[in-house]
Every structure is written in C-alpha cells, then in structure tokens.
Amino acid sequence: MIEVERTLTLQHPLPDVVAYLADFAHTQEWDPGTVSCRPARAGVPVAKGSEWQNVSEFRGRRTELLYRLIRFEDRRLTFVGRNRTATSTDDMTFHEEDGGTRLTYRARIEFRGVARLASPFLRKEFERLGDEVVRRMPEAVDGHLGAEGQPAG
C-alpha cells in the first residue's frame, strides 16, 4: 500500500471548494494522472453514492477505475476507486482558514495480486504526483470559481 498526504490552502470559501471537489469529474483538471473522468450516470446530482468512470495514466499505461463517493460531508469527502488490480482512495478534509480553505488531501492505493509486488518501487512516483496535485489544484479551483470565489464565466 502507498499513501501520500499533502496540505494546501485555497483562496476560496470552504463550501465553494467542497462543492467543486465533490464532483469527481473535475479530477481531470487537477489530477496529473487523470486522462478523463465522467459521471457513470449523466444528469444526476452529486450525492453520496455517486459514481464516475475514471481513466488514468501511470508510467505510460492507462487503467480504468470506477470511483464512488462514499463520504459526502460539509468538511470531508472520500472517494474509492476500484478495478481488478487496485483500490484507490482519495480522502479530503477541509478547514476554514482566514476566509479561505485549508485542504488536507490523502491518496492511498492498494494493489492486488502480482501488482502488489511493485508497491515499494512506485512510492517515489506517487510522491511526485502528490506534489503535482498541490501545484495544479489551486489553478483548477481558481479557474472554476474565479478570482472572487464566484463561478467563473
């Protein structure tokens, strides 16, 4: 199992940040490994139990996971993605901080079968991806919420 944790501050109100990140389709805007992510059922409001088809690329290989929102709280979101070789958990906790939002993002991946043997060799790459999330997420949130915290566009 590999775990990566990062904390970052976003210059937008907590409810707006949570609403943006609750729609896992936005991962393609801030997650460097996500190639595409779409709701499993189009037109359905985001709620606990919502699912997304996620295509990710890691070390030149594409993989598909079905993610489900298993915890949808005012200050915490948890998504679990599964396929035959891995279970990936993205857990986000939020705290108000000077009108903005402090986000603690934890990513955990558990490999199954033969893939499990590679875990120790992949940690450094997952740490690099965690650093890239810290760089990209503020840009994605700003792009979606705009400079004043209102939806852009």
Rank of each mutant, 00 (worst) to 15 (best):
122 L>Y: 08
133 V>K: 01
41 R>M: 11
130 G>C: 06
101 T>C: 00
77 L>T: 04
99 G>T: 03
136 R>V: 02
46 V>M: 07
76 R>V: 00
107 A>T: 07
43 G>Q: 07
82 R>E: 15
57 E>W: 08
131 D>L: 08
139 E>K: 12
79 F>R: 03
133 V>D: 01
82 R>I: 11
107 A>W: 09
33 G>H: 06
98 D>G: 09
81 G>E: 08
118 A>T: 09
37 C>A: 14
107 A>Q: 09
143 G>S: 05
112 R>L: 14
138 P>R: 01
126 F>Q: 03
42 A>W: 10
132 E>S: 12
144 H>S: 13
71 R>T: 15
119 S>Y: 05
135 R>L: 03
74 D>H: 14
108 R>W: 03
46 V>P: 02
134 V>L: 02
56 S>E: 12
76 R>E: 00
137 M>P: 02
84 R>N: 14
112 R>I: 03
74 D>I: 05
55 V>E: 13
73 E>F: 04
60 G>D: 10
87 T>H: 06
134 V>S: 01
72 F>P: 03
117 L>I: 10
132 E>G: 06
120 P>K: 06
87 T>W: 08
48 K>M: 13
35 V>I: 12
47 A>G: 09
126 F>V: 02
106 R>P: 00
86 A>L: 15
127 E>L: 13
85 T>K: 13
34 T>S: 09
86 A>F: 11
127 E>K: 08
37 C>E: 05
123 R>M: 09
134 V>E: 00
83 N>F: 08
131 D>E: 15
51 E>M: 13
74 D>Y: 09
71 R>W: 08
36 S>H: 06
41 R>F: 08
57 E>N: 12
145 L>H: 02
63 T>L: 12
116 R>N: 09
117 L>Q: 09
64 E>T: 11
